[in-house]
Nucleic acid binder design. Structure first.
Length: 229
DNA sequence: GCGACAG
DNA sequence: ATCTTGTCGC
């Protein structure tokens, strides 16, 4: 028996071993209440496992595509790709081995959400982290209550997100016993679901894993600091 | 037709 | 996504 929390970060040959994991990235885009075309994109890099922010960049971006559930990638990826490319040329020493995205990966109508798009475009593994459940393949709110719940060390648990077809789209994850509402973890690419869940659970005690949380906090802080909110 | 709908 | 006050708990 092995504790899930100690599992490798991937099961493929190109396995990203935990021992090799030193940097985790996080991305998020925050919007302004009355503005639909101006937003702040943020990319952060945290040391692992200490979770200290070693890089944080915020940039105002022009949003040209509307928000349509299922098409989030068309609205946000280009800006996220830009930020990663800046990091690659500016601080190649801080390019993370994996990036957590505020959006789904496999948990998507076409099995290819924002996290999947980003991963492919930047050639870096990603983990999709959704805060609300995207109903796909028969998934619904009650699936959360009927789902098979697997207890995790630390008091948390993960809930299988299985659709009518039997497909395992992702996992509902509660960071610890105190967190009631789960986040929805799904594979972007370059990492297995169980490894993604194990990794997410090692990213703090808040409902949202630290990399995504930091990107969220910083992008919002940036907007306020520059007189938008 | 109706409901659901990541951020 | 964003708008909001107080409130409960470590």
């Amino acid at each position: 028996m092995c504790d899930l929390a100690d599992a490798d970060v991937a099961t493929e040959e190109t396995a990203l071993k935990v021992e090799a994991l030193t940097l985790i990235g996080g991305v998020d885009i925050s919007f302004i209440k009355g503005n639909d075309t101006l937003a702040c994109a943020c990319l952060v890099v945290l040391s692992y496992p200490s979770l200290q922010t070693v890089y944080a960049e915020c940039t105002m971006v022009h949003i040209s595509e509307p928000y349509i559930a299922g098409f989030l990638a068309f609205r946000e990826v280009s800006h996220l790709v830009d930020m990663v490319n800046v990091l690659k040329t500016t601080r190649p020493d801080l390019v993370p081995q994996v990036i957590m995205v505020d959006g789904n990966g496999l948990l998507h109508h076409q099995g290819f959400g924002l996290a999947s798009h980003l991963s492919v475009l930047i050639s870096i593994p990603t983990v999709g982290v959704g805060k609300t459940l995207l109903m796909v393949d028969g998934l619904s709110k009650d699936v959360i209550t009927l789902a098979e719940r697997i207890p995790l060390g630390g008091g948390g648990e993960m809930l299988e997100l299985r659709g009518n077809s039997g497909t395992l789209w992702g996992m509902g994850v509660c960071m610890n016993a105190k967190v009631t509402s789960p986040i929805y973890v799904s594979v972007g690419s370059g990492i297995s679901l169980l490894s993604a869940v194990a990794l997410v659970r090692r990213c703090g005690q808040f409902r949202v894993p630290e990399p995504v949380r930091q990107a969220d906090l910083r992008s919002r802080h940036y907007l306020r600091m520059n007189g938008y909110a």
